[in-house]
Design a protein around this nucleic acid. Structure first.
Lengths: 350, 350
DNA sequence: GATTAGCACTCCGCAGCTGCGAGTGCTAAC
DNA sequence: GTTAGCACTCGCAGCTGCGGAGTGCTAATC
């Protein structure tokens, strides 16, 4: 079952050629371009073997060979050699990532744009799942007699606020007491935990006015926590698929774009993938309209803990070596920059 | 130059038919379907006249007629009668809009999704331009020794925060004084105004520690204000264009999607459009790849003042009457719900 | 036994042709 | 002014034939 050295060489040659030219490759052109020292006829025999073993396919009798998913899998696992980025490429990534650091989401989106720009593929980036993020403090800030701002700060550096309408009269002192009490109760607990276990009368108070205020605030608090759990998804370079021969048929392009526009579904699927750089090829993908694509995802970390994802989608005929290297470098870089932003000691209590 | 009653009827019939079927309409089918009491031959004569006047075109000799941009313009300006929404349609819009009111941007995005769902067209929504928004207060909140949260609340109800790293030691009192001082200085002024005219030593202080802190905070403050000016753009239902016969050619679909993915450019173009419901047809559009589209935009208001936009893009062959009615209703509804959210008296001082 | 040359064969893609259907424009009659 | 009739135009779908690319097989060669 093992592949002879020569078979491997031929297979690699076919993959290389096909990745570059997107056209079935014939025995003659291999013999010519990749000096293996044998004639086309020999290569044809080997190719016939490789086809029987499932590494190659045939669009039709008189066409050249095309690598199968299995071939790409072999390539990614064993044949491919890691390509180091040039200093120039590294520099570009560094510069572009640091350029826009003001808002977290912006940075993430930028990273996706950068990735798609470099690889010329469709890319996406997701903000981290935050259910394991812990709360740092809660604060209620008066706006006017009908409105207050609810502010929730998490230890990852994530801070959210919503303006809420309250229909009970309140005093600034009451707000402060409630803020402190909520902070005291929830500080250090994960969002998940608070959502599941926070009972409204945690905050309960003997003072009637305060408890009325709490009753008015708590549902909004919970709702906002739920919002915080939402993962944001940014997609970039979707129109790159038009440059890919595989998608020159309308139907394919369409079903691909439709897949990408069902964002909730897509997000869910992506969250299920493991950590690190993961490559899934063609049929290995779950989504139907991705059966002829390859998907590469990688993870970055915020504050060393929360995990976000970034990914690339393209034809199975893809420069795996290059793309995985880029993604590895990019996510490392992202993780580092998010360590800086949120400080070293975010775990300390207030 | 004026069109006879019969010509108008025929023109209207052609438009109606073409909008529905997306196929050039012939004299016979008009005579049949839209009982005008005349024979196809007569209609042919009239059509020839209409063509000469620029209201109709001919894909080729043996094809039916197709309305020109000029015809649609006439239709939108004079012929079209406003279509009232059914109570059911209104109900759907109401329900869907109220369903997700927690975050402003979410609501906007939802509105775009709803719009594209109802019209089956591509749609977008933009958050308001906020340069005329006025500041309500600024607040600095301690996080740990290296970080503070900067919170900026505007009178529209818009509240932003960023975590900033400070490399000078600070006390809670200093933060409070600085907060108050900034609020005092900027309250009631527009973001634009503050960005242009705020000089750092506005805040200047005799106390050295305080002025060091201010120096550390101010650049971030300005940057955050700039961020607040950013208009967010949400697009929905882009893949709907695949259902439109006009875009069944790859090239068209492609150039359309590429246009839409250049978001900054698109945003800029949209901001230049006037208020209320505005229809631009085919060649009237500036962007090249929109010369065969129609674009309808409408404006909604936040707090009765800030103006956001929402829009629809589709083939010139579009149900103008229906779409404009829907958009009118939708924006009214949006404006109302944003009045509620931010309260009636947001103008009062703190 | 592995390799190679040679050749028949397959199949795609393309260009050119044909017939059909839809719809027009014109003319002559009403 | 309106209409019937008819020749004409054009796009489209389907067919045909051809060239090119590449295979698979067989028989000769190393």
């Amino acid at each position: 079952m093992d592949l002879s050295e020569r078979k491997l060489q031929i297979l690699q040659a076919i993959i290389t050629d096909y990745v570059q030219n997107a056209e079935p490759v014939g025995s003659r052109s291999i013999a010519k371009k990749y000096g293996l020292g044998v004639s086309p006829a020999t290569i044809r025999n080997e190719m016939a073997d490789l086809e029987e073993m499932g590494y190659l396919t045939h669009p039709h009798t008189s066409a050249g060979r095309v690598p199968s998913d299995k071939a790409y899998r072999l390539y990614v696992d064993d044949l491919m050699q890691k390509r180091n980025l040039t200093p120039q490429e590294k520099r570009i990534i560094n510069e572009r990532l640091r350029a826009n650091m003001n808002e977290f989401d912006q940075t993430i989106q930028h990273a996706a744009a950068l990735l798609s720009e470099i690889t010329k593929l469709a890319s996406f980036a997701m903000t981290p799942q935050t259910n394991q993020d812990t709360l740092r403090f809660v604060r209620l800030i008066p706006v006017d007699e009908h409105a207050i701002i609810l502010m929730i700060a998490a230890n990852s550096g994530n801070v959210t606020n919503t303006t809420l309408r309250v229909n009970v009269p309140y005093t600034n002192e009451a707000l402060e007491i409630l803020s402190k009490s909520m902070t005291y109760n929830y500080q250090g607990r994960t969002i998940d935990d608070v959502l599941k276990n926070a009972i409204i009368h945690d905050i309960g108070s003997d003072i009637e006015a305060l408890s009325a205020l709490a009753n008015s605030v708590m549902p909004n608090f919970m709702r906002t926590l739920e919002d915080m759990l939402n993962v944001n998804l940014y997609m970039e370079g979707l129109t790159n698929i038009f440059n890919i021969p595989e998608y020159s048929s309308m139907d394919r392009a369409r079903s691909f774009l439709e897949l990408m526009s069902r964002k909730e579904e897509f997000t869910r699927d992506m969250l299920e993938r493991g950590d690190g750089v993961i490559v899934t090829i063609g049929e290995e993908n779950v989504a139907d309209s991705m059966k002829d694509c390859s998907l590469i995802t990688a993870t970055y970390h915020v504050d060393g803990k929360l995990v976000g994802k970034i990914g690339v989608i393209g034809p199975t005929r893809m420069k795996y070596s290059e793309v995985t290297s880029i993604m590895e470098y990019l996510t490392q870089n992202l993780s580092e920059s998010f360590r800086l932003t949120s400080g070293k000691d975010t775990d300390s209590n207030e």
